[in-house]
Nucleic acid binder design. Structure first.
Lengths: 236, 236
DNA sequence: GGAGGAGCTTACGGACTCCGAACGGTCCCG
DNA sequence: CGGGACCGTTCGGAGTCCGTAAGCTCCTCC
């Protein structure tokens, strides 16, 4: 996955940058780490990151100065990390043009979410996408799914699971993969997947006991199989 | 983008004007910066900006004097920037004919939103845009909303929230997105959104406890669903 | 055909989300 | 200065959803 967005992390504390590094990796992003302002500017000039995560407290050149220098050469989004209670610094950071900020200690997961949100914003308005499979239509923008025009009451997990399957048909995934792709987990009980697949089947399959869409691949996991183009039906 | 509206920024602090400059650029507007009152008047006379962002605290000639001088030659909208707590100054500023004001520190995003709002208002009655959904009609220029012809007493936030929803129907937004799009915040408590949605529902829904327009999307946020074209009714 | 493992089904308690109401603060007006 | 409007926050409560556990069925391989 060399094609993911490039993130530059600037922090002199290795325990912070290491954790953040791993989380970004998992989210499919490329990461470089700089320990001080000079290294940051150097990497930024050469590597052209899509976003910069910047600690406000840096040895030598301060975080604000780095931010300003970054913005001079290129219009790259910046997320600032500030220590708790440095209210004035935070305000200053926002005025300097930081696109967002987080106060330490922060959750790595939240950082990833904010980064994705900002990148999405920079990418422009997302096209409202319609995923279809036979009589089932999923509107990812509206976050609702219909079957024969009737609304399907899917919960959030079920909706995301279905969306993922529709985007990756004809391909088998084991439970660990689904847990990571849909839940965003890297650990956890795979039984969770089993239960949610069952609940989803109950809502989208004609007969949940004899599924035709979410196929069980024995010893592996599951595979989504769209209905053939000119299939049985009797619908419309 | 040479065709965008022209904004003149008057502030002696480069860290402020630079940031503001970039944000306006991103919004597709042309920007000129003046560091003091004399430069401001000179540029204004030559360049004829569509709007002026004016710091109240200026070296030499004060912001109020600049504002007065600007208004003498041409009726250009002015947004004032005031330091926190300068209550009297702000009042004075509004009396001098400022169209809006912001207290420092402010969010650049919010400034852009206010500028766009004022420009839209100043664009004249030709842009009198009518947003409608069933028996609800919103006149964005007049900043008035009616239901069955009766005026709806919406506050500013409620009005802007409703306007945003009407412009983006059938699409689910999480609270952070609404906070950014409507409030102009990139941080803050998402509960704010919840409460305003509730208060707006109280005014536009038949039964606020069973909303049919502002739908809550569990685990995500809200979605606006206009009434179907040939729906039930019994109105008029 | 039997044993073992993998998947299915159900039930339940806790966690989370949303709602509704009330509170305190600020600004505006009389 | 007192009252009102609007806004952002907070808190309790109710409802929903989710993950886990436990027993069961089905498949596979010996």
């Amino acid at each position: 996955m060399v094609t993911g967005p490039r993130i530059l992390v600037v922090d002199d504390d290795p325990t912070v940058s290491d954790v953040v590094h791993r989380y970004f990796d998992k989210a499919g992003m490329s990461v470089q780490v700089a320990a001080d302002g000079n290294a940051a500017l150097e990497i930024a000039a050469r590597w052209l990151p899509d976003l910069v995560v910047l600690d406000l407290m840096l040895p030598g050149m301060g975080g604000l100065a780095v931010c300003r220098a970054l913005r001079e050469t290129r219009d790259v989004p910046v997320i600032m990390l500030t220590a708790l209670g440095e209210e004035s610094d935070r305000v200053l950071g926002l005025e300097q043009g930081a696109d967002d900020y987080l106060t330490k200690p922060f959750s790595p997961r939240e950082l990833v979410l904010r980064v994705q949100s900002i990148l999405r914003r920079a990418a422009g308005p997302e096209a409202s996408e319609l995923l279809t499979d036979g009589e089932i239509v999923v509107d990812s923008a509206a976050r609702q799914a219909t079957r024969d025009g009737a609304l399907l009451a899917l919960t959030m997990r079920e909706f995301e699971l279905l969306t993922f399957f529709l985007r990756h048909p004809h391909q088998a995934f084991d439970r660990a993969q689904l847990l990571e792709q849909v839940w965003g987990w890297t650990f956890g009980d795979s039984a969770t997947v089993t239960v949610h697949v069952r609940r989803l089947r109950e809502k989208i399959e004609i007969d949940a006991a004899a599924p035709t869409r979410i196929i069980t691949v024995w010893g592996v996991g599951y595979r989504y199989e769209p209905v053939p183009a000119g299939a049985a039906a009797g619908h419309t």
